[in-house]
Design a binder for these strands. Structure first.
Lengths: 236, 236
DNA sequence: TTTCTTTATTTAGTATACATAATTCTCTAT
DNA sequence: ATAGAGAATTATGTATACTAAATAAAGAAA
């Protein structure tokens, strides 16, 4: 697949926004970016348009491009919507997955068990992605898959790599997946829906707290750990 | 609000795609469009990027831009997803609308009654938009509102103006709205959800048939009328 | 005649140059 | 000294020119 330069730039900028290297509200000047990537302004403009489409940046005519500043309540909204979309996928998957698809997601889940036990964060994060992907596919609705994936991409900035480093988050994630998988294999639509909704809600607690901590520049690890404790307490 | 040229072009092209002047699969050449709008290729490229973001066109590197060709099964997917999103909005509206919002949607619905009786298609279509908008707002989730509106825009090409000209479609639409409204005012989440899902499903039947007819160039009015009859039969 | 290769043409991708709008800075007047 | 108006600067929007890639066409070989 012949990757165009503007796409590379778009990708590069997205990574830097995701990693927090570029902060919300910050202005992105075309010429500066062009210099850094050693290209002209033209592909940079293309890239910024693409980012604007994903909502990562905002363009105002003659006023330039700024990284979208998403407040806490807006983030709540996003996770609620994300939760509903994923839960819908889970519901449809419970109803529509064929035997092969059911076997596949089961294998992914079993595989992730090893990573969870070994506390292998990168491997678990990868398996996690595949688990959710399998559910998008299993819903057998290309449009739904597309918008849910889009939302996931949009939320990626706030689901940074540190996420699974939070105390116990891997283990609780794994047990939540277990419930989702059981419901899907049992073709229990409503249980799958509820299990997924709960899973995303649990995630969002951590993520929102992490994100707000990063925003204010306070100690991320400390805050997320406290959030994890609160979550564990709430689950008991 | 200072509207930029690329936005005007984007708007103009969108209108033409929506109206069917430009057909699915058709290729959009930058220079041709630039000539028609009497501008250079630069703002045209901007415009095409924006359209690609909404899914109306597809861009493949070095292969140009084509109007997204949506097949019948893909259209089914889209309407199913749309139905779920709108139904979710209705569910949340039943739960979260405040007194003012409930009063407002009730008034919109009462107003639309007049248009339905008078068979005033344009007025009913407008009131219909406002009815659905009220439900998006009432869900109190900006993200959900945003993606649902986006989907509605994306489906606009297939919800052409002829829609409400279909025999009895206005009347059945009105009675479906009645059920949705009742459920919302009664704060009955599940009933609101089901009523909206049914409403969108009913719409989609007509639209999909209309769209496929337009695609093949056969007599649209005839086909949609037959679809309406089938729908009426199914409802009894 | 048909097929493969090479060349030519067309069109998208990128760079540079110019125009216009917005911001900032300075100078003047109160 | 401060506030406002105007000029200068900066950055975005647009146009033109150039490069590279993909497709079409033409010619040569089987």
């Amino acid at each position: 697949m012949a990757i165009t330069i503007s796409e590379q730039i778009s990708q590069g900028l997205a990574d830097r926004i995701v990693s927090g290297a570029i902060r919300p509200g910050e202005k992105l000047e075309e010429q500066v970016i062009a210099n850094e990537f050693d290209v002209s302004r033209t592909p940079v403009r293309d890239a910024l348009r693409q980012l604007a489409a994903t909502g990562l940046v905002e363009i105002r005519p003659h006023k330039g491009v700024t990284v979208t500043d998403i407040g806490e309540d807006r983030l709540h909204d996003m996770f609620e919507a994300m939760g509903e979309l994923e839960a819908l996928c889970a519901k449809l998957s419970a109803q529509r997955m064929n035997a092969v698809e059911r076997k596949k997601i089961e294998l992914i889940h079993r595989e992730s068990a090893e990573y969870a036990e070994a506390s292998d964060e990168p491997a678990y994060a990868d398996a996690n992605e595949r688990f959710h992907d399998a559910i998008y596919v299993g819903a057998h609705n290309a449009s739904l898959k597309s918008i849910t994936e889009g939302f996931r991409r949009r939320l990626a900035p706030f689901r940074a790599k540190i996420f699974f480093q939070i105390s116990n988050r891997i283990l609780s994630s794994y047990s939540e997946h277990e419930l989702i998988l059981e419901a899907i294999l049992a073709a229990d639509r409503e249980r799958a829906y509820e299990a997924m909704r709960n899973h995303i809600a649990a995630s969002s607690l951590n993520v929102i707290d992490y994100m707000m901590a990063a925003r204010t520049g306070s100690d991320v690890k400390e805050k997320t750990d406290r959030a994890a404790e609160a979550l564990t307490a709430a689950n008991n």
